[in-house]
Write a protein that binds this DNA or RNA. Structure first.
Lengths: 242, 242
DNA sequence: GGGGCGGATACGTATAGACATAACAGCACG
DNA sequence: CGTGCTGTTATGTCTATACGTATCCGCCCC
């Protein structure tokens, strides 16, 4: 069922054509939300194919959230879930490569500790949990672009205790080694205080973007990170379709 | 094929079980990226079902981006596209309902105009295009939560010219009436200047989150909006899985 | 008039079989 | 030695059929 996702150079399969035709009529506004689309049997007649072929196309549209289906009632164009957007979080190294500038990071702090009560609650970890605390600055060219403040739960990632992160930044290291099954993002704005301003080379009081991310694996916390982007030089971008 | 997305209260179909089993092994890290998953015929044997049944489950996994398939070679666990996150943008009215507080909005400005050169470029519209310019404040309870500054291209949405937006805020109105096929988000931080501080009831200089969204329909711009969230009271949250 | 019942309907799921196609592997021939 | 042919294999696609099941709609009876 990946045909409709690929460039339509290859001659589309029948299922793919049905899928594309209906998708076009929906996104073009031809069939607004709530429209009842033809029954499986009707479509099967129109395309001179079996009901299963139509069914595969419609099932794919359900999976994409474009239609909903009810027994006996029929298939209907779904309400657009516009409030969901695919947000692409920047990878600093990639961003630097795109700008043709060198990327580097510096480890500012690196310590093993046990969490106090307040810190444990903030991180969603049990009181006294052993964690690795890493602080790190990312730079593109000569300008700092972000400050990263991260806790890694050693219960979930024991190997992190032996890692210095001097060659690979902690985010990249974790992505490569640890699977994750759930995550949560929070994005907010804050004003840079004196120490943050110094680290990021911005004026004190300048607005910064803070991305807070918590990651779990099979219900157990893996890592908690605050990434503070340097002032108005940085922003997050996302492009998406319904 | 929507079974695996629903709560598993209903007894899962065979296709759904195969789907879930494989999905679990992938997200659990049991089968890391690149692992070849059993052939369709093998799985059909294991589950004592026909190849079509397995095929439907695997097709759904392809659509979700969890696996890739190559003829003759087999099916493989895909590289995780971790940098994609589903970001849920808050709907003010819904947020207010959740807090059991009244929501209301006020139209602060409402004018028909033609775009100057600079404004047209910023909005991605042709110079001289007729637009509706609306500014609006959203409040939950008695506190303002966001300031909305929106341009609506009348070429794409002629009906907007006759709408006062006094009952329905412009964002909601557009969502209900106009289909869209592409959008772009930019999130950045800014410091509130004097007028913004007054509108949002925050201290001048306080950091605010700005969500800039441009929407197209069939390649033609529909609307451009800046939503400025009131200081540190507001933030964006997203929860997601690989 | 209204409430319950049953039939018709449209989707949900699964089967078995068929042929097409891409790709790999091994063999043979130049 | 490498190049091309061919057979095997796994997926891709489609058909025809079957039965389950939720739901709608209209009929009938009270």
């Amino acid at each position: 069922m990946n045909a409709p996702l690929e460039p339509p150079i290859a001659p589309l399969s029948l299922t793919g054509r049905i899928h594309r035709d209906i998708q076009q009529r929906i996104v073009s506004g031809d069939w607004p939300a709530g429209t009842r689309i033809p029954f499986e049997t009707e479509l099967a007649g129109q395309y001179r194919c079996s009901r299963m072929t139509v069914n595969k196309a419609l099932s794919a549209l359900v999976q994409e959230g474009l239609i909903t289906r009810r027994r006996k009632a029929g298939s209907f164009v779904a309400e657009p879930k516009v409030e969901q957007a695919v947000m692409e979080i920047q990878d600093f190294a990639m961003e630097a490569a795109r700008l043709n500038l060198p990327y580097h990071h510096e480890i500012l702090a690196h310590s093993l500790k046990r969490l106090g009560v307040a810190a444990a609650r903030a991180a969603g970890l049990p009181h006294g949990a052993r964690v690795l605390h890493v602080m790190c600055r990312h730079s593109i060219g000569e300008r700092p672009v972000a400050f990263e403040d991260r806790l890694i739960a050693l219960a979930a990632v024991p190997a992190a205790a032996d890692e210095q992160f001097d060659l690979i930044p902690p985010g990249t290291w974790l992505l490569r080694r640890v699977p994750w099954s759930q995550a949560e993002h929070t994005i907010r704005a804050c004003c840079a205080d004196a120490s943050l301003a110094r680290v990021l080379d911005v004026k004190p009081g300048e607005a910064c973007l803070v991305l807070h991310r918590r990651t779990w694996h099979l219900g157990k916390p893996v890592t908690t990170v605050d990434i503070t982007y340097a002032g108005e030089r940085q922003h997050l971008v996302g492009r998406f379709s319904p």
